[in-house]
Design a protein around this nucleic acid. Structure first.
Lengths: 154, 154
DNA sequence: AGAGACTTTATAGTAGCTTCAAGGTCAAGC
DNA sequence: GCTTGACCTTGAAGCTACTATAAAGTCTCT
């Protein structure tokens, strides 16, 4: 029976760092596991499935808060699942919004880039001038709400 | 002549928090400004234009590192501007990649969402089951490199 | 008994801010 | 002169979702 794992086993099997598992425990996404005599964490099938669930959600770019929410719903099997749909729909909405913002952004960037096709000195560079005088995005543009976070580990 | 600002004036005019201006100074994007007798920062037109440049770059979702790079090029007006083009092209590439990842994600999310159109109990919810058993994105999917950072200040 | 792989906890660092705390400065009003 | 309130100062902590490091303890094999 391979249904008892130490943290490293679980980490290897699910291809996630051990620290991340401990972090999820710290954040309350995973319960505090049983311990061996030597104080090592011991996980069973239930925990493995719970972690799999979490990792799938993360792969879909949900925040830990969204995942916490889904886990709570998952832990209440008698409840209706309308709320599950709501969480997912909200997430789909967030992603759609981000895509929209990034597409806007891409248009602006290409527009800017087109200002300097012919090499000149940076004193006369259409791009640098564009960045200095471009109309500030008052409310229609990407503003600073577009979000960052690319380059997680490039 | 309205070409001397205290930090609050500048912040109001460019619609950015004062702390952010101080932060950019700390990060070396803005130079250390002159001070009044009472140790208040004083800004002139040049600083205002520099900050405008920075804010436009941020509105285009560039990182502070990218902006630092562009500012350095801007401060060397005799240099060719091929490097400006390169920075911008790289940034356009980053944004394109993020859009691609998010589109993938959106497909997966909609697929998942389609598993639960009819309301049932969460014990039988197709979405929760899908999240528990979905094939883990080994390397082709969005994985965890897709980046976060949405909801900067929702 | 000792080497090496694994585990434990606690702490600090990442990006780009935002928020807070404790205090100093300045102009107006009484 | 003194107070009120708006503004400014610095420094430190908090946010997300980890990642990395350090110093120590445990386990397994020979």
């Amino acid at each position: 029976m391979t249904n008892r794992y130490r943290i490293g086993d679980l980490a290897t099997r699910l291809a996630v760092p051990t620290q991340t598992i401990r972090y999820y425990e710290h954040e309350g996404l995973l319960p505090k596991p049983a311990r061996t005599e030597g104080n090592y964490r011991v996980y069973g099938i239930a925990e493995r499935e719970r972690l799999t669930f979490i990792l799938h959600c993360r792969a879909l770019d949900m925040t830990l808060d969204e995942i916490r929410h889904l886990l709570r719903l998952r832990d209440a099997p008698g409840q209706g699942c309308a709320e599950v749909n709501a969480v997912l729909d909200a997430h789909i909405g967030h992603v759609a919004e981000r895509i929209r913002l990034l597409n806007d952004l891409q248009l602006q960037l290409k527009d800017l880039r087109a200002r300097c096709e012919s090499p000149s000195t940076s004193k006369d560079c259409g791009i640098l001038q564009g960045l200095a005088s471009f109309p500030t995005a008052q409310d229609g543009g990407a503003s600073r709400a577009g979000g960052h976070g690319r380059r997680a580990q490039e």
